[in-house]
Design a protein around this nucleic acid. Structure first.
Lengths: 210, 210, 210, 210
DNA sequence: AATGAATGAGAATTCATTCAT
DNA sequence: TATGAATGAATTCTCATTCAT
């Protein structure tokens, strides 16, 4: 009975149905303003049913976070360093990062505000989502520096700057910025150029004011 | 009574006392978990007194946001472009941005989560705080490009990338990142270099692997 | 189907299985804190199955009460007055009363609290369990008095005093009294002496202070 | 402010108002069936007000128990052993016990069922109410035996038998027994005679069948 | 008959807000 | 103006009961 694979499937499906509904409602109203009734209605089930699958409202948020964690882990496995052209690689890397963040924008909107405010969730989010991502980047950057592909930089701070930039851009979009929303396809290119080439004029152009 | 300047002063002082208390409590527990009782106790006054100065709990948050807005406006007026060396200017600019954000970290922690979740506040925050800052940056970048000081870039996205980076770094720190907290003095330098020079090797170093 | 004796047996067995489980759980947690799930788990069946045998949770308690009633009735039929020695008779009588009460202590703990609080159950318990027992005692005492075996007493109150004593001692034990639990074997003797001889000194001992 | 004697008085009065209401409602419906709304309505206040004075519904019950404890303690101080005639003393003693129990019948009905079912309350009730009463009795009985006033008996069990008798008679009345309710004035006399003289015929009457 | 997921009524509790003092 | 007790609407969660499988 407990290991009946069909049961298992039904349970997983129902859990996901609830998590989808909760993500939507949390993103719309925030964790606290969203009521169990809201989530149940959105999921098309009765209030009580939620408690068959989750211990509490907080547990629902936790499960959303865990699902995000799984997604993050899965998508983290991409072929780093297979590119020849470093700028092209950066573009690809940033595009992949964005393709992880943007489609999950609703999830972040649902989860971030509460994470920022709840010490326990904060710790969990930082350990399970932020840190692993940061570490992958650090390892890769260190390798690139050692291979002489990129300039000597303060790796930890630089990685955080780049990661923070992605997170910050997402936040600006969540805050209602239309520019980012309208041009997000171009963002990887723009960011890659910014990060790789910097703002300063190319060597040859300096005198010519271009 | 209404125009008595001493009265006015007392009222402002009491309002600020309450806002300070509320900022602290909101940052610690979040807007919803923080109760009027918490704020009153922190401010050393009675619950009811808060309602002499603010119409509602939401109004207290709004007032925190407005006070932040005033701070932002005041500090926004800095002498742009007075620097000769552009990298030095960037360092100074980023340092000034950070000096606006970091000491107000508690305010942001108090305000951001709720702003991300409340459409009305979001609109207000975006119009009054994000947009003005972005526009100042846009105007300045445009000027620099036209003067041939920096490379041709997509100004709106680049500005947002840089602003987002600051916001994102703040967010990472709020999420508990120790690296940023420990090295925030060095951040302006590191970021200025990253943004101005990029990651790619300096021209002369390319073959030598440095 | 309805009169199939094997069916009947199965049904009775299942009902008793549920009643045993419920008695245990009610005694442990009380009627209200005990859930249908608790009872079902204790009985090793599914929640819903209970409703095949009982109309409601209250009905389960009622059935426990009725089963207690049957037990009481059955054990009530003992040979009164067959003893010669009246003190020996009393000892035997009290021992028999206690042997009815003590092994059913769990049942009383399950049932009493709710009976004390529920007018309907109270009425039922009083009519079906208390009254019959009291009446048997009254009839017997009356006979003893008429036969000149015991002193003239207020029969109804005396009977209630003795019955109450048994009930009260059980209650004290349920409340956690170790003395009673440790010495219940001696109780019939002690009580018989108390009730039959009283506390006062035997005639011959009065002067000698013993 | 915290030690303002008028405030203190108001608080005590309001607490007692709530405890009176709760006692009534608990006695009528039992702890679990009684809702906070019931208690509030009975007390003529709003639901929430109860939580200004008590931490929870369980805390209200606890407070009823503590108030009972205070009453018990206060009334326990009576002049034991001042009587000459032992039978008269017993009558007085039992009357005093009953005058403690009977007017508080509602309190017992409110409290006993839950006490019987809740391990924590049980422990508390036993330690604070049952044990002190038992110990006073034990000490007194021991003294009487040593003075040669009463027969050698098993003191602990005898005391419990007498105390249990009182408790059991109260229980029988709570169960709806009319006989006890109608004759409770006579009970001390009847019980004193029963306990002191026992049921057996007075010496001289044995042969004459009286 | 047995199961146990789903239901939704009901209860305890919280807390923003009011208002008499 | 300041106070804080009182209010009661709103919310989370529980659990007896139902019913499709």
């Amino acid at each position: 009975m407990p290991d009946d694979p069909i049961q298992e499937l039904l349970i997983t499906a129902r859990r996901n149905q609830i998590l989808d509904a909760a993500t939507h409602v949390f993103a719309e109203k925030g964790f606290h303003r969203a009521t169990i009734k809201d989530i149940a209605r959105q999921a098309g089930i009765a209030d009580g049913t939620i408690y068959t699958y989750f211990a509490s409202k907080a547990d629902v948020l936790l499960a959303i976070l865990n699902r995000l964690n799984e997604t993050t882990e899965r998508e983290q496995h991409f072929a780093l360093g297979s590119e020849q052209d470093l700028r092209a690689f950066f573009t690809a890397y940033l595009r992949q990062r964005m393709e992880l963040l943007w489609p999950n924008a609703e999830v972040f909107q649902a989860v971030l505000p509460e994470v920022l405010v709840n010490a326990e969730l904060r710790e969990m989010y930082y350990q399970q989502i932020v840190m692993p991502t940061v570490q992958i980047g650090e390892r890769y950057f260190q390798a690139q520096i050692e291979e002489g592909q990129i300039r000597q930089v303060d790796v930890p701070l630089t990685i955080r700057a780049i990661g923070g930039m992605m997170l910050g851009l997402l936040a600006l979009q969540l805050l209602g910025d239309q520019e980012i929303a309208a041009h997000w396809e171009e963002l990887p290119e723009v960011l890659a150029t910014l990060i790789f080439d910097g703002l300063k004029l190319a060597e040859g152009n300096r005198e010519r004011g271009m």
